[in-house]
Amino acid sequence: MADKPKVAFYWCASCGGCEEAVVDLAEEILDVVEAVDIVFWPVALDFKVEDVEAMEDGSIAVSFINGAVRLSEQEEMAHLLRQKSQLVIAFGSCSHLGGVPGLANLWDKASIFDYYYVSGPTVEHGENIEVPEVKIEVPEGTLELPEFWDEVKSLDQVVKVDYYLPGCPPTVKIVSNAIKAILSGDLPPPGSVLAGTRALCYECPLNDSKPEKLLVKEIKRVHEVEIDPETCLLAQGLLCLGPVTRGGCESLCIEGHMPCTGCFGPLDEVLDQGAKGLSFLSSIIDADEEEEILQILDKVPDPVGVFYRYSLPRLSLTSKKEVKLGG
């Protein structure tokens, strides 16, 4: 008993999909429960933060943390689990790269609040505009809300992360392989992403129909064409991010007859998923004249949403601001 490794699960700003992904382990979860001693899992088990605080540093073998970091409490919890754990694993693309909700970094708190509470189409208010406040006096006493930050962060922007489980959410297979690898101690070098090391295309069933040297004269948006499920989507002009996305998901979206949007993140050595995607697109466009290039790119009107869909928080550029110097 005493020898069983201790494991903790925690969620930060998560949509809940990563928790569902753990539930989707179905029967396998029982094997996991057999092999480890789960010491903290707020969604399922009764252990207090105080229990974690009382543990010796490093006494938890591994902590899985999903969701991005947006509130101070989440950051504190990440630090606490870091201190108590030998391994910290970023679980899912929010934790790994910031995730879809990280697109909020294109906006600041003030504009979000303004739309949500003041100017949105169904918002009604009288003379007094009631915008939530961190501390508010009600007739009966004082109520508090956590501070809403301007920015969403990935886990490794807050604490050191040992391994990453990619995907939005990670697949059952990825999760179960990772757990096995951790239990057996058969792990790659720290900092690794525990999934494929090659691009998605290598495991894609349509890879055979992908031309050796791919060039496109036309890009199509998914709603504009009938998708041929037998032919490489990129070869059909659909912007599939398979070539620049880490493999390991077993081509889920492709099996659904839709292009990959990159949730497994970039390949090793690529720090900036968006810039890489953009570079990749530049290399397959079959045009040299500015006019023609622009015309083809008409079909890519939102590069941020396409290339940084899952990783915007990793780009610190969104926190820069333009300064206008006075006269």
Binding site: A13, S14, C15, G16, G17, C18, E19, E20, A21, R70, L71, G99, V100, P101, L103, A104, L106, W107, S111, I112, Y115, Y116, G120, P132, P146, F148, C168, P169, R221, V222, H223, T261, P301, D302, V304, G305, V306, R309
Partner: peptide
């Protein structure tokens, strides 16, 4: 908590909305 999906949907390609908004809730 609050996340601001309505804001950051602005500027996105409409056809991406079903996949972006599903991330409101897993």
């Amino acid at each position: 908590e609050l996340r601001g999906f309505e804001n950051f949907l602005v500027g996105r390609q409409a056809e991406d909305a079903p996949q972006i908004t599903s991330r409101i809730c897993g």
